[in-house]
Design a protein around this nucleic acid. Structure first.
Length: 416
RNA sequence: GCGGGUGUAGCUCAGGUGGUUAGAGCGCCAGAUUGUGGAUCUGGAUGUCGCCGGUUCAAGUCCGGUCACUCGCCCCA
């Protein structure tokens, strides 16, 4: 380190070309799957008025109370960098008055921001892919959305590294009844709860269900369970979702402790989880959010969706996505040097990947061609120019041949 | 916000109990090969030892602080 290090902001990272290729693998797979399901891409601003997030996420959730990047702009408005994308998408649907075009089917990819302590698979600027299906209240919609997640993971080659967990939070009435029973059960023995869970008892009691504290877990053995409080509609809905998954042969396990942090979730909650990422095992998480549209001021509208962490998915990829392999142009001498640029331009216009090294002798340029993984080297010196040809060296086999400069693109067809 | 670990070359890391010019492998540069990569050999460059302060005749090494990274908790993708 020759000088004081210029650091990126904590929790942010530069994505160098190899990192970008991994991210691209994830976003390309998502886009391809989403388009097969008839979902169109949507891009909303990365910041919104603060209320867009603070209202629907729940004033008591950690994301709102301590993790938002909120600032006042020069006009005096309180703005927030989006901590997640669902609220923004719903806001866009309301802003654009799209409710006579239901169902709406969207997918997206982009950066999100949360002021958290970074650790493996967690950053302050991170990237998510996601899908939203707005309108249908039928369980088939839940099945479709979950199937899309499974397809993305399968296309990324992650099917055997990830499992699907699912649960139902029920409709608002079921959820409220369970909450009341849970608080009634835990309050008398609150002193024995861990400090974290004691705080959650008042703030967000549902979250106590997935505590990692051993003592808490023992106390929860006799606690009211979510599924005992589902009313008949909620029970039937959950059963229909599960039947649909079975029909599509999408393996899933019911996890009664699976709950979602954001207040707007109802009914189905699900996560695709992995054992391979340490403490942050969730790679895709989502659920039904029937109350959100109305909460943001739109008409009462059902909706379901999920978001996936691009960094987490990229870390799981078993194979490094390959860089495009070039043809390296190796000119020798001033005449060839002048000609190389022109040739490179023509070949690039014809669809070839061409690398120019700009300096060094033949040996040095051949070394570079090898290092960047070029398929072939096209050597042009005075000898070649005099004969109107180029020397083509296949860098995989080492075979060398002559190709005419006239109609070069045709002669290089195999290396496109 | 809380707890643990770690900061030495571009990268991965050695450097018992303080003691001259701080090392290795990989990578990089040059040469062996005036127009031919991968393999081999030879040579070379590169460090405010994260930063600030303290103890000491002497600090990469000990002490304090600070910053960063990392793993975990909370929470989440």
């Amino acid at each position: 380190m020759a000088q004081a290090k210029l650091q990126p902001v904590r929790g942010t990272h530069d994505l160098l070309p190899a990192d970008c290729r991994r991210h691209r693998a994830v976003t390309d797979a998502t886009r391809a799957v989403a388009e097969r399901y008839g979902y169109g891409e949507i891009a909303t601003p990365i910041f919104e008025f603060t209320e867009v997030f603070s209202r629907p996420l729940g004033e008591t959730t950690d994301v709102v109370t301590k993790e938002m990047y909120t600032f006042v702009d020069r006009g005096g408005d309180s703005l927030t960098l989006r901590p997640e994308n669902t609220a923004s998408v719903v806001r866009a649907v309301i802003s654009n008055g799209l409710f006579n075009e239901l169902p709406l089917k969207y997918h997206y990819a982009g950066p999100m921001f949360r002021y958290e302590r970074p650790q493996k698979g967690r950053q302050r600027q991170f990237h998510q892919i996601g899908v939203e299906l707005i309108g249908p209240s039928e369980p088939e919609a839940d099945v479709e959305v979950i199937a899309m997640g499974a397809d993305v993971l399968a296309d990324l080659g992650l099917a055997d590294r990830v499992t699907l967990e699912i649960n139902s939070l029920g409709d608002p009435a079921s959820r409220a009844a369970h909450r009341a029973a849970l608080v009634a059960y835990l309050t008398p023995q609150a002193e024995r709860l861990s400090p974290d869970s004691r705080a959650r008892l008042a703030r967000n009691p549902l979250r106590i269900l997935d505590t990692k504290d051993e003592g808490d877990r023992r106390m929860l053995d006799g606690a009211p369970r979510l599924d005992q409080f589902l009313n008949s509609e909620s029970t039937a809905f959950f059963a229909a979702v599960r039947r649909g998954l079975d029909r599509l042969r999408i393996a899933h396990a019911v996890n009664p402790r699976l709950v979602r942090g954001f207040d707007y979730y109802t009914h189905t909650a699900f996560e695709f989880v992995t054992e391979h990422l340490g403490a942050q095992g969730t790679v895709i998480g989502g659920g039904r959010y029937d109350g959100l549209v109305a909460q943001l001021g739109g008409p009462d509208t059902a909706a379901i969706g999920w978001a996936g962490g691009i960094e987490r998915l990229a870390m799981l990829l078993a194979v490094e996505p390959p860089a495009p392999r070039a043809i390296a142009l190796v000119p020798i001498g001033d005449d060839a040097e002048a000609r190389a640029q022109e040739l490179a331009h023509g070949l690039r216009r014809a669809g070839f990947v061409i690398d120019l090294g700009y300096r060094g002798n033949v040996r040095r340029r051949m070394k570079r061609a090898n290092k960047i993984g070029a398929k072939a080297a096209l050597i042009i010196g005075d000898t070649e120019l005099a004969k109107g040809i180029a020397t083509l060296r296949d860098l995989t086999t080492g075979d060398q041949s002559e190709v005419p400069l006239d109609g070069l693109a045709g002669a290089l067809g195999a290396y496109r």
